[in-house]
Amino acid sequence: MAGSQATERQAREVASESRPGADWEPVIVAFLCNWCSYAGADSAGTGRMVQPANVRIIRVPCSGRVNPRFIVRAFQRGADGVLVSGCHPGDCHYSTGNFYARRRLLVLKSYLEYLGIDPRRFETHWCSASEGQKWADIVRSISETVKALGPAQTLAGL
């Protein structure tokens, strides 16, 4: 169970950082495609673009790899916002992965809202490796939005 404990640990660390207070900062989990958005985030960093430090990045091989459970899991363990970013439709490294992702996440987004999770807490973007500026803007925008919304509601566990 070493792996799941590691996941649990990460999740709990995320949760424990997310305490309301005067200097409260939201925790946002971002799933980034290795071939575009992850590199885009990197170029935003190397380009020294100013961006808030609320986003925790998890690299995935494709936005199509993002199982909707990942997103619900992040919320379950206390994330205040979740972000998925992949290649622009048509530009997928695996040609169609992001098209599948788009359909699935479209349904998920509506479903999260249905479950009572504010839809503004979950965003999906298409951001290529060269769009460092766009990445910085995305991070700024979602950080501000989620901060204004306050801590996300969570359910009691053990």
Binding site: M1, V72, Q76, L155, A156
Partner: peptide, 18 residues
């Protein structure tokens, strides 16, 4: 499955959500 543990074995609203 236990690995990955998608749903913890403790019961409560949080795990039931999952």
């Amino acid at each position: 499955q236990w690995e990955p543990l998608w749903m913890g074995r403790s019961t409560g609203a949080s795990e039931q959500l999952m």
